[in-house]
């Protein structure tokens, strides 16, 4: 494989990380918590698509829509049941709860779908792109991941910047009390954030499992953590930061695997996080967070 192939694969994997990272970044920006169960929502999305498309034989795109709806509801429920009662609790309690939710989802999936991984049938149905007389062939899954993630980032930026609900999200993210005094329903805004993040997780699940077609109950865990790294890398709370961080992490991982060591690829990703946190604790595009007393 040539360098260009690796680079394209890295950007593609990074695009998937970016979509997942958006979920982390949105929830962190607005609810000020790290939803470590986010990666597992991707896995649920993957199983929902698998069940609809492969088990029931529905149209793959319809299956994706159903999975998005399912994950959106799941995200809202997780927030309502697990996180909302802890709104006033310390961030450590919330973090532990999020880890609990993560294991809960993994084990529910284990109970329903069993311990054997299933082979996921790609939902992307586009022609391959052939460049330089077939010297470089870009798989349709690769193209889909890049195109979809760009569309999502642009759409989400427009939503947050231009709509009333988006402006409410920005207000809640900066000052919950002041937002309430403007008439913003903070609970509903947080619900909306979880809904969007989880809906995107289903898309990420579809893209991830189409590109790497093995699905098990822990499928979401590692990509979830790497996307979290990407969100921190790009500057947590920032939408373009999630995109940049995601793509950089994807490229670093694939290039590291190809040119340094396949075994150490993950270690390299986390080493990068450590270095970034030492040099610029707020990430590439991160804003300075001032703690209110």
């Amino acid at each position: 494989m040539g360098f260009l192939d690796n680079l394209i694969n890295g950007i593609s994997l990074g695009s998937i990380y970016a979509v997942i990272a958006l979920g982390y970044t949105l929830v962190y920006g607005i609810a000020k918590m790290l939803n470590f169960a986010h990666g597992d929502v991707i896995m649920v999305g993957g199983y929902l698509i698998f069940t609809c498309a492969t088990t029931w034989g529905l149209n793959p795109y319809l299956s994706l829509v159903i999975a998005m709806a399912g994950c959106t509801v799941l995200g809202i429920l997780i927030e309502k049941i697990a996180y909302k009662p802890l709104r006033q609790a310390t961030s450590l309690s919330v973090l532990i709860t999020a880890i609990g939710v993560s294991y809960f989802l993994q084990n529910i999936a284990l109970l329903i779908f069993g311990a054997n991984p299933v082979t996921f049938t790609s939902i992307v149905n586009l022609p391959k792109i052939s460049l330089f007389d077939g010297q470089i062939i870009i798989k349709s899954e690769t193209t889909a991941a890049i195109v979809v993630s760009v569309l999502i980032v642009v759409g989400l930026s427009l939503f947050v910047g231009k709509t009333k609900s988006g402006r409410a999200m920005l207000a809640v993210s900066e000052d919950k009390d002041a937002a309430q005094l403007m008439g913003v329903n903070v609970n509903r805004t947080i619900s909306l954030t979880f809904a969007i993040g989880s809906g995107l997780a289903a898309v990420a699940g579809g893209l991830l499992c189409s590109a790497y077609p093995v699905l098990s109950n822990t499928t979401g865990a590692m990509p979830g953590i790497k996307a979290f790294v990407a969100a921190v890398f790009g500057g947590i709370g920032s939408i373009p930061g999630a995109m940049i961080g995601g793509i950089l992490i994807g490229v670093i991982e694939i290039l590291g695997r190809a040119y340094i060591s396949p075994q150490l690829a993950d270690a390299i990703v986390f080493a990068v996080l450590i270095i970034v946190l030492m040099v610029k604790p707020t990430g590439i595009l991160g804003k300075k967070i001032s703690e209110k007393v």
């Binding site: 920005l170 002041a178 005094l181 008439g183």
Partner: peptide, 27 residues
């Protein structure tokens, strides 16, 4: 709840202003 009280016709200029620092004046 606070967000409904605004709709009834009461506005609050909080202590320390509490404007949204990262947004524009227009926003």
């Amino acid at each position: 709840p606070a967000h409904k009280i605004v709709r009834m016709g009461m506005a609050h200029v909080p202590e320390g202003r509490r404007i949204f620092q990262q947004l524009t004046v227009l926003d």
